[in-house]
Structure formats: structure tokens, C-alpha cells
């Protein structure tokens, strides 16, 4: 039997799901994080507690939510409260993981989802804005960024710093008043899995995706990556992961 065929979205979802341990709280936003959380619940993390920003806590993600406020975000959940409760839960250190995306990311994991271009107003391109992203990036312990990997997105400096990563480097988050020991933890991209080097807080290559070379990752990154001597390789989605993803997580093929 050959390797099962899969698309890049399915790969992102599977690798993101693998980053989520059981029995943790995870702040889930629209799109891939919802699928990843659902897949994780059905694979290795049945007690994962998804937290949705408008109040849904602990949903059983039997059916895929299509919006962060819809009923599936608290289907058979343990609580349905409101946005203040959720944001304040994160603020007092109760949310372990957060998921983030963006139009641009820099070497320190800072994200832009506000504007493209040098001027704030009127901007060249107006994007949706922070939404809850800034709160997630500020308040959750460990943030996982999911993003397509190319030079337009992986840039030396973001046009607008919407959501804090490590800002300008070691100690910068704490200097700005953000909670200590929090920040970006992993970057799940279409080409690789990355983390942030302890001493410099710069993005570091951990493992390449199936069929991707280290050179390709470097060539598609608009800044200098930390590349260790040994770079791992991510396992492709297993037949079981793909089956659950396609048959149980998103049978309507809303996202995949």
C-alpha cells in the first residue's frame, strides 16, 4: 500500500492536532483550529477542553462549528457563558493553549491581521483586525500559530503588529507588561513545524513536512531561520487520522 493521498489543509490539521495533549484547555478560533481540536478529541485527547471566545467551554466537538459563537461551540459543553468570562479565564492563567493565524508572521512570532502596507489609515489593504487574537496571544500560556508558508507571509517585519509574539526578542514581552512565561510555542506551516529558540526567541525549524527539504523551507522564509544540525521529519497523516477527519470531523467538507 502506498502513502494515503491528502491535501495541504488536511496535513495542517493533523499536525496541529498532534500538538494538543489530553486534559488541557485550548482557545479555539474559526477554521483549522476547530478541525484540529475535533480531530484531537477523537484521536488521543478525549478530555481536551475547547474554549471559544464568546462563552462556549468544554464542548464535545461531535459536529464541526462553523463560527466561534454558534451552538456547536457549547454542544454538550460544561458551560455557556460570555466573552468576559472566557478572556478573564485566560487572563488569570487558566488557558493552556491558544491557536492563532495571520496574514504575516515575523521571526519572533509576531502576527499581523490588521492592514497591509505602511500606513494605518487609509490603508492599502484593510484586513479584519485583531478580533480575539491579541487577547489569545497576550494571555494564553502557549500559542500555536497555523499559517501557510511562503515569503509573503514569513516576513522580517510585519506591517502592523496585531498580536504579540516575542515582540523584539528575549524579555520583551515581560518588559511590555505581558504575563511572564507565555508566548508563541509552535508554528505549524504548510512546509514545516517550527518553534522558538530559547536564548534568542527567534523562529527555529523543528521538522519538515513529508516531501519537503530544509532548503525549500529556507527559500520560502523571508528571514533567517534558526536551523539546527538535526531537523526532524513530520509523519504524514495516518490512514486513521484521515478517515476520522473526512468521515467524522468534516463530513460535509466545509473546510477540507
Amino acid at each position: 500500500m502506498g502513502e494515503p493521498a491528502y491535501n495541504s489543509t488536511e496535513l495542517l490539521i493533523c499536525i496541529a492536532a498532534r500538538q494538543m495533549p489530553d486534559s488541557v484547555t485550548a482557545f479555539i478560533g474559526t477554521g483549522i483550529p476547530m478541525l484540529a481540536a475535533s480531530l484531537a478529541q477523537k484521536m488521543h485527547a478525549p478530555n481536551l477542553v475547547p474554549v471559544f471566545e464568546f462563552g462556549g467551554t468544554g464542548a464535545q466537538l461531535k459536529k464541526l462549528p462553523r463560527a466561534v459563537g454558534e451552538s456547536r461551540t457549547f454542544y454538550r459543553g460544561v458551560a455557556a457563558s460570555g466573552i468576559c468570562d472566557i478572556m478573564e479565564t485566560a487572563a488569570r492563567g487558566f488557558v493552556d493553549y491558544g491557536f492563532l493565524g495571520g496574514a504575516q508572521i515575523d521571526p519572533y512570532g509576531n502576527l499581523n491581521s490588521t492592514i497591509i502596507g505602511p500606513q494605518h489609515h487609509p490603508p492599502k489593504v484593510r484586513l479584519p483586525g485583531s478580533g480575539g487574537a491579541n487577547d489569545v496571544g497576550s494571555l494564553c500560556w502557549r500559542n500555536i500559530i497555523i499559517i501557510r508558508h511562503d515569503k509573503r507571509r514569513f516576513v522580517p517585519q510585519v506591517d502592523f503588529l496585531t498580536t504579540p509574539g516575542y515582540l523584539t526578542g528575549p524579555g520583551a514581552r515581560e518588559d511590555a507588561g505581558l504575563p511572564p512565561d507565555s508566548g508563541p510555542y509552535r508554528v505549524v506551516s504548510t512546509l514545516a513545524l517550527l518553534d522558538f529558540e530559547q536564548d534568542t526567541k527567534r523562529m527555529r525549524l523543528l521538522a519538515t513536512n513529508p516531501g519537503v527539504t530544509v532548503k525549500q523551507v529556507i527559500e520560502n522564509t523571508g528571514f533567517e531561520l534558526v536551523v539546527p544540525d538535526r531537523v526532524g521529519q513530520n509523519e504524514p497523516p495516518s490512514a486513521e487520522e484521515l478517515r476520522i477527519l473526512r468521515e467524522e470531523v468534516d463530513p460535509e467538507r466545509f473546510y477540507i
Partner: peptide, 24 residues
């Protein structure tokens, strides 16, 4: 939302730990 909360508390502001260090 915390801006609404401050108004609902009848105070001119509340301190939070979001938005720090950013262009936001």
C-alpha cells in the same frame, strides 16, 4: 468588551493585560 464592562461598572477605565507591546 472590557470597555463596556468599565462603563457598566461606572468607572472611567479598567486595567487589563491585553494589547500591550503591539500596534493594536
Amino acid at each position: 468588551t472590557w470597555r463596556f464592562k468599565a462603563a457598566s461598572m461606572g468607572v472611567p477605565f479598567i486595567p487589563v493585560r491585553s494589547m500591550l507591546g503591539t500596534d493594536t
